[in-house]
Structure formats: C-alpha cells, structure tokens
Amino acid sequence: MSDKKDVVEVLASDLQGPGVVFCPNPKMTLWNQHPKVYIDLSHGGEGKCPYCGTVYRLKAGEKMPSHH
C-alpha cells in the first residue's frame, strides 16, 4: 500500500457554490467510505479532506467564480 495521498484537480465547473467541493467525490470507487464533507478551495485554491487526506486543488488556469 502506498502512503501517497491522492490529489484531485478540479475545474471551476466542479465547484459547488463559492469555491467548495465535496469528498468523497462521485469518481471514487468507495463513494461511501466516510461521511460527506465539504472542502473549501476559496482560500488558495486547495483543500484537504480531514477523513481520507485527499487533496483537492483547483486546476491551473481555472478561476474561482466571482461573488455577486
């Protein structure tokens, strides 16, 4: 087993609301492996799941949606 944590690059279109994604994400095989949590990417474009350690990062060149 590898200790390397997954890094998931997300597009602006993947964000839920103002810079938020959720984990586990729909692409994970074990989508029910831990409670659903929301990861805030609005501060620095990166966030980490407190349960599984998956890092979510806004893909280079993608822009956060602007607040209205």
Score class of each variant (00 low, 15 high):
V55D: 01
F22H: 14
Y38E: 15
P35W: 10
H34A: 02
T29K: 15
Q33H: 11
S13C: 15
E9M: 09
P24A: 04
V10T: 03
T29R: 13
D40V: 03
L15Q: 04
P24T: 06
K36C: 07
S13V: 15
V20T: 08
E46T: 12
G45Q: 05
F22L: 05
P18C: 07
T29Q: 12
K59S: 10
P24D: 07
V7G: 06
V20Q: 09
I39T: 02
K59M: 11
A12V: 08
G53D: 05
C49A: 06
R57V: 05
A12W: 10
P35I: 06
K27L: 13
Y51I: 00
H34L: 03
K59Y: 11
R57Y: 03
M64C: 04
T29A: 12
S42V: 09
L11W: 12
N25G: 10
T29H: 10
N32T: 08
L11G: 04
P50Q: 04
H34E: 08
Q33W: 04
H67E: 15
A60M: 09
D40H: 08
G47R: 01
G45D: 05
M1P: 14
L11V: 05
V37I: 11
T54L: 03
G61D: 10
K59R: 15
L41D: 01
K27R: 15
I39P: 02
I39D: 01
Y56P: 01
K27C: 07
T29D: 11
V21F: 01
S13Q: 14
W31M: 11
M64F: 13
P24K: 04
C52Y: 04
H68W: 13
G47N: 02
P65V: 13
Y51E: 07
K63T: 13
D6A: 12
H67R: 13
G61V: 08
S13M: 13
K59L: 12
C49H: 04
N32P: 00
K36V: 13
L11D: 15
H43F: 09
K36M: 12
K4F: 05
N25M: 03
N32V: 00
V55W: 04
N32Q: 12
A12G: 10
P18R: 14
V21E: 03
H68F: 15
Q16V: 13
P65D: 11
V20M: 09
P35A: 08
V20F: 11
H34C: 01
P24N: 07
S13R: 14
G53M: 05
G53E: 06
K5W: 00
G61T: 09
Y38Q: 12
I39Q: 02
E46P: 01
D14I: 03
G47Q: 01
H67D: 12
A12C: 13
V8F: 08
Q33C: 08
L11H: 11
C23T: 01
K59C: 06
G17W: 10
S42F: 09
V20K: 10
L41N: 01
Q16I: 14
E9A: 04
T54E: 06
L11P: 00
P50A: 04
